[in-house]
Design a protein around this nucleic acid. Structure first.
Lengths: 133, 133
DNA sequence: TTTATTGCGTTATGCTATAACGTATGGCAT
DNA sequence: ATGCCATACGTTATAGCATAACGCAATAAA
């Protein structure tokens, strides 16, 4: 919630739009919401999104081609190099972010056994949340 | 779970193209390779891909928007409801499919604790394989 | 002052995926 | 056989996601 001191105007607009959203938003969803603020082109949004992902303030959901604000950006340092998992309800759109050290450890074991150097790990569960089943 | 029916011509063409490929292919990659066989439209490929995924003969890689043939389609029954994980080398494109029961169990625990009903789980590690690092 | 970096805005383009229409075929109950 | 249904097919058009390439502006560093 505390504004990142280094954010540009476009980055702030995009971050606040994602913070205000209930679930995830596509880049074009964001663009549509920000036309009133003067944004006109997809690149203005994509460039901001790239930076916000880099800062650890938002996540990209690969299976949705969409973006969501980080559940706990203050904790960024703590799990900056950790694995973030998501449970995504296909009915209501609710996205729950979680971290599981056991899973992370198991993945590290596999990577070590294959000398695979991980850059980014995606874990996404699509399904129905408790409210929707 | 019953055995999948015989493949149609389009389905066979798409499956054989993926089997012959070294790594993953996008739908449009496949279309380009099959123009010589008479395929002309994306939908012809996408419809075949949908069925092949349904039959468990291929996988969709969410972080690449691409498809790859299943490493062990004979084993379909054994892990039809299991979780498949992928390690994807961003340098050479090699994709390694693996299964880890401990990770699967841990995800099941999380899902049970939240009453979340999973439909499809994506685990993809992007990085550099041993040959490329 | 000069140079390098970063962000911005714009136009154009490319890649990924599906909607909607009509046609054809094969199974099967009547 | 007739009618019905389910599935696959081919085509055109469109929707949705993402980046290339250009030039300009502001700022920081040498």
């Amino acid at each position: 919630m505390t504004a990142h001191p280094d954010l540009t105007r476009n980055q702030s607009l995009v971050l606040h739009t994602l913070n205000a959203a209930n679930g995830s938003l596509s880049a074009y969803d964001i663009l549509d919401k920000l036309r009133a603020e003067g944004l006109r082109a997809p690149l203005q949004v994509y460039r901001a999104l790239d930076k916000l992902v880099e800062f650890g303030l938002i996540h990209r959901l690969e299976s949705l081609n969409a973006f969501i604000s980080c559940a706990d950006p203050q904790d960024h340092e703590a799990h900056a190099h950790g694995v973030t998992a998501f449970a995504i309800c296909d009915s209501c759109g609710q996205v729950t972010e979680f971290h599981d050290h056991a899973i992370e450890h198991r993945l590290q074991q596999w990577q070590a056994s294959r000398s695979f150097k991980p850059e980014k790990t995606t874990i996404e569960i699509r399904g129905a949340c408790s409210n929707c089943s």
